[in-house]
């Protein structure tokens, strides 16, 4: 398992290599990349801030949940912090599985769950200011 939070560009081939194991017949990857607009308003760049120790712990828990649920032996998850330019990957997931269905489902589970409970925040920078993106729908709740 690779789980990391990094201020450096994500090395996607390294994540894929980690899950490319002989028992796997499919690898599903997901990249979240920086879009040049927020609902039409031009975005110049993004900044990501994390509660680093808890974010890594939550990311690891989510990966473990996916590995158990879909009986996987290799998953890699990386998320950026700091400033990102348009087109850069902010998050990358690679899931290897014996068959494609599990790989797709687990990859989807990991990104959807990350967005609801990993303490990371995105700031959108516009030409004339910046705002933290804080959708109330993504408010984590105590289980």
């Amino acid at each position: 398992m690779i789980v990391e939070l990094t201020s450096d560009p994500i090395d996607v081939p390294r994540l894929i290599a980690h899950v490319n194991q002989p028992s796997n017949g499919g690898i599903c990857t997901f990249l979240g990349v920086v879009r040049d607009n927020a609902e039409g308003r031009p975005v110049v760049k993004l900044g990501y801030e994390a509660y680093e120790s808890m974010a890594v712990a939550q990311m690891r828990t989510i990966v473990e949940e996916a590995m158990q649920r879909w009986d996987l032996d290799a998953v890699a998850l990386a998320h950026r912090t700091g400033e990102l330019q348009i087109g850069e990957a902010s998050v990358a997931i690679a899931v290897g599985a014996p068959h494609r269905a599990e790989a797709f489902e687990a990859c989807r589970y990991i990104i959807d769950t990350l967005k609801t409970r990993v303490p990371i925040w995105k700031k959108e920078f516009f030409r004339d200011g910046a705002v933290w993106v804080e959708p109330v729908s993504s408010q984590p709740s105590a289980q």
């Binding site: 979240g32 998050v91 990350l114 995105k122």
Partner: peptide
């Protein structure tokens, strides 16, 4: 104690 606003990673 961490105060956690709605998250927006990804």
């Amino acid at each position: 104690l961490a105060l956690i606003p709605p998250v927006s990673g990804g």
